[in-house]
């Protein structure tokens, strides 16, 4: 997995609440058996019209946000399905960090598995960063995962919480499966106990 340490980039504002996984990556693109190449279809139905032409009003089609690396989004981002294609598409587009007041549980976990950092901040701080993002490509927002801070283009610093284990894995680009394999003895012991206590499992 790619490491995430610091990021300074353009943030795209998406104030809509309840942005769901069908919006992030519609199901027609779930037929792939690969993880890559989904960026072109990120937010597909919002981004292109029926003739596959870009919809100029959509934020990521605007010149100043085409290279956005951060999203500032409305409440409950990523609700809906478990499709990891959502963070795959986000990452493939070039976005490495999403800031919102809340995220849906499965989407939130999926981000960390893919080097994407979801940041939860209180409403008024998300509102301030949304205004910052609306300034366009001259306003760069800075993220520091080690310090757990977001710095606005005006220099306002906001601290965020993140689970220590998730932070550690993201900072170091660690592979979860490899880490768990180191504890295989515990799993062996558990299975031995299971076969005597709940043999029907």
């Amino acid at each position: 997995m790619d490491k995430f340490e610091k990021l300074s980039g353009v943030a795209a504002p998406m104030p809509l609440i309840n942005i769901d996984t069908d919006m992030i990556i519609p199901k027609v693109f779930l037929k792939t058996i690969k993880r890559s190449g989904l960026g072109v279809n990120l937010f597909d139905e919002m981004r292109y019209d029926d003739d596959r032409a870009e919809i100029p009003d959509f934020v990521l089609n605007k010149a100043q946000y085409r290279n956005a690396e951060i999203l500032v989004a409305g409440d409950n981002f990523g609700c809906g399905s478990s499709r990891e294609h959502a963070p795959w598409a986000i990452k493939d587009f070039g976005i490495r960090c999403i800031i919102s007041t809340s995220f849906a549980d499965i989407f939130y976990n999926n981000c960390f598995k893919n080097g994407v950092l979801p940041i939860i901040l209180p409403q008024e701080q998300v509102d301030a960063l949304m205004k910052d993002a609306e300034k366009g490509s001259n306003a760069r927002i800075e993220i520091d995962l080690a310090d757990q801070t977001v710095t606005s283009s005006d220099g306002d610093v906001y601290s965020f919480e993140v689970d220590a284990f998730k932070k550690h894995c993201l900072l170091n680009g660690l592979d979860d499966i490899g880490l768990t394999m180191e504890k295989v003895g515990s799993i062996d012991n558990y299975e031995a106990q299971l076969s005597s206590e709940r043999p029907w499992v």
């Binding site: 399905s81 478990s82 990891e84 963070p87 499965i106 999926n110 689970d163 499966i177 768990t180 394999m181």
Partner: peptide, 21 residues
């Protein structure tokens, strides 16, 4: 019972466990 992403599917296939809080 709950849903998981594809990375976690791989994790369960390989280890029969999930990393959880």
């Amino acid at each position: 019972a709950h849903g998981i992403g594809t990375s976690e599917v791989e994790h369960v296939l390989a280890t029969q466990t999930l990393i959880q809080k």
